[in-house]
Nucleic acid binder design. Structure first.
Length: 129
RNA sequence: GAAGAGGGCCGGAUGGCCGCCGGUCCGCCGCAGGCGGAUCGGAGGAAAGUCCGGGCACCGUAGGGCAGGGUGGUGGAUAACGUCCACCGGUCGCAAGAUCAGGGAAAGUGCAACAGAAAGUAAACCGCCAGGGGAAGUCGUCAGUUUUCAGUCAUCAGUUUUCAGUCCGAGCAGUUCUUACUGACGACUGAGAACUGAAAACUGACGACUUCCCCCGGUAAGGGUGAAACGGUGCGGUAAGAGCGCACCAGCGGGCGAGGUGACUCGCUCGGCUUGGCAAACCCCACCUGGUGCAAGGCCAAACAGGGAGCAUGAGCCGGCCCGGCUCGUUACGACUCCCGGGUAGGCCGCUGGAGACGGCGGGCAACCGACGUCCUAGAGGAAUGGCCAUCAACCGACCCCCUCCCCGAAACUGGGAAGGGGGGUCGGCACAGAACCCGGCUUACAGGCCCUCUUCGGGG
RNA sequence: GCGGGUGUAGCUCAAUGGCAGAGCGCUUGGUUCCCAACCAAGAUACGAGGGUUCGAUUCCCUUCACCCGCU
């Protein structure tokens, strides 16, 4: 049965609980560019999941909601090209960027995290035979 | 038309595609659930700040007193308020209107820098005035002294007339004459004691006046100050003055009358004649106020590990204190309470139908209220309400093109601009800001736009 | 969501309603061959806006910023 690539974004694709966030931060896989910081961790599912951390440093409620909406939309539109990771996304700039730039950097950073995790797994496999 | 005053409203619209949250319905599956579909609904005037007030929930049924906190013209509206409405009063404004924590300062305590005599019921630095004392000066009177002048005059000196005497001389003698001397009366001149008068100076006394000083009083009219100075003006009055008296005015208090529910207003009258400011200083008075907050609270599930202390005039509820009340307990290795430590951060309810919205009607000046009709209008739970695009409307900015007059003005002249104005097009921008239990207010933020009412001034009819 | 606190000079802190101060720092001058130290002089501030008062850093209200606590 062919997996239909949709752009839906139901709630099971979100990270909501504190424990899920702690698990991603504990994996210590980080990639950063000028607009966002992205943490990643391997999950046991066949799709990626997204969590958001937007602090009050970013601005008022309107500005924070704007960031979160853009990040969710960017994840929703590019979820087919993302690896099956749990991602936690943290904005770094005060002013949100364009949606296309955000998609691009999210894809790039997710790919970088995937590579990092594979390297780490190989190294630990070698070191502890 | 200009300048202004007050108030109300809006806060983009429509459509397409892809998504998100919730309700309802349907379908499928391996049915405590999952997946999919249809349909309906899905941020604001401030959702904000959290400055007040309530509902609701728990604590105990929410009680009394003190403390603490708050409010402060009157009447009303309201569930309630520190909110709103109307009115009253003060201040500002030509006005429309704006603004005011707007009770009490003769209950008490306190504060007022600097300046100023004094910052408040008491005084007196300068000043003004009366009395007493002293000093100086001027004037007057009296007395004394001195000097000068005038007069009178005892006395003295000189000269001289007359008379008398003596001497010398002449003449015969007498008489007489002459010279000198002496004396007397007198005259003149000079000196002069004394007296009188006048003038001047000095001294003393007395009196008057002026100035200064001291003492004891009176007075608060005036005094550079200051934010603020113990009513204002006039007349009388007084030694000088003063509400000391009077008239008018301002202000305070009392009484009476009228109007108003009332704050208060108006009028008459009386009074002591004046008693200031700050209470967002302490305070007094009146009124209000129990605490905690949906992380309230209830139910279910999951997980863990226990230890210590307290007591019968006890512990807890209970909060800053007391009273009062309630619960547990009645001699207990228990229960209860407290402390330390450990575990769980899952689900359901509360959770949105409400002091609800809209519409006209009725009552009320209004805030608001009443009945009726219609409607249901977000309910998430790391937190949805979005992304991309198109069209339209309004405004702003930049650029391009076209036109030539345009602006102010009712209009003309004048003036100004033409680096302007008008039209069209393209592009870009379009605020403040995001529900977290729910309401009523307040405050603050805000691109732009619309509407209504009123005032003053100017012009025209 | 609820509760509490603080804003004073560049920094750390004071101050009855009437003068804004201290220490360190800064600037200038002196001293020294030069620097340090020292001496002298100077500049710099009451978070913002209203109100009460004759007068506000202080009292009251509003507002802004920051910090802390409950959970």
């Amino acid at each position: 049965m062919q997996v239909l690539v949709t752009n839906r974004f139901p709630k099971r694709m979100r990270l909501l609980r504190a424990g899920e966030f702690d698990r991603v931060f504990a994996a210590r896989a980080l990639a950063v560019d000028s607009s966002i910081a992205l943490y990643g961790a391997v999950n046991e599912l066949d799709h990626p999941r997204l969590g958001l951390v937007v602090s009050r440093r970013i601005g008022g409620a309107v500005a924070r909601n704007r960031w979160k909406r853009l990040l969710r939309e960017s994840f929703r539109l590019s979820q087919g090209e993302l690896p099956a990771l749990d991602l936690v996304c943290i904005p770094r700039a005060a002013t949100p960027p364009q949606l296309a730039h955000l998609q691009e950097s999210m894809r790039r950073l997710a790919a970088r995290i995937e590579r990092k995790i594979k390297d780490a797994a190989r190294r630990s496999l070698k070191e502890t035979p």
